[in-house]
């Protein structure tokens, strides 16, 4: 596949940076979180205070990095994308992608809120609520479902995995895009 293909821009540099910062942060928090959560892994790895610190500061760094990318990047472009996501109709994205993006963003906020409550609840009774851990765990399971579907469609499923190129190099083939996103053009 080289000659005769027309490439169209799928994701801006800001969008791609935002995506990969989010992915890296999520995976770091997933790895350290599972060590804290699963007894077998806790026993295997040990070093709980260290893992806890990495998880906590990783979470703060994750949200801060996302905010920084949004602030320093193409704010106007992101705002356009956000407005597009507000309507669940096919456009540059299909409805499944929109639902995935919206839930991912909502989950990040809820992860942050419940994570901060867990952290400060360990230090102050006023922030220790019985349901915090239920929310944080529930978000983990819901996120894993989203992630599994996302990875399948972006990496494995033959008809859709071309889209990964849009998130790495920024462009996709125009004929593929026209087939999959007829409402984009």
């Amino acid at each position: 596949m080289s000659i005769g293909i027309t490439w169209v821009r799928r994701f801006s540099k800001t969008e791609r940076t935002l995506h990969w910062v989010n992915a890296a942060g999520f995976l770091l928090l997933l790895a350290t979180g599972l060590v804290l959560y699963l007894p077998r892994l806790s026993i295997l790895v040990g070093r709980r205070p260290l893992v806890k610190d990495v998880h906590y500061w990783g979470g703060i760094g994750w949200i801060a990095a996302l905010a920084l990318v949004a602030l320093l990047g193409d704010r106007r472009g992101l705002l356009r994308t956000a407005r597009d996501l507000e309507r669940l109709t096919p456009s540059r994205f299909n409805v499944g992608q929109k639902v995935n993006a919206l839930l991912t963003a909502a989950f990040a906020l809820l992860f942050l809120a419940s994570g901060l409550l867990l952290h400060f609840g360990e230090r102050d009774t006023r922030f220790r609520w019985a349901s915090t851990v239920v929310l944080h765990d529930g978000l983990l399971y819901a996120s894993l479902v989203l992630l599994a579907g996302h990875l399948y469609l972006a990496v494995i499923h033959p008809a859709t995995r071309h889209s990964l190129r849009g998130m790495t190099r920024g462009t996709v083939s125009e004929s593929w895009a026209r087939r999959h996103y007829p409402h984009w053009f």
Partner: peptide, 15 residues
């Protein structure tokens, strides 16, 4: 959908 998820998640701290 976004707001309902955030609000639902936050109120789940109570239920």
């Amino acid at each position: 959908l976004f707001l309902a998820t955030v609000v639902g998640g936050l109120t789940s701290l109570a239920w």
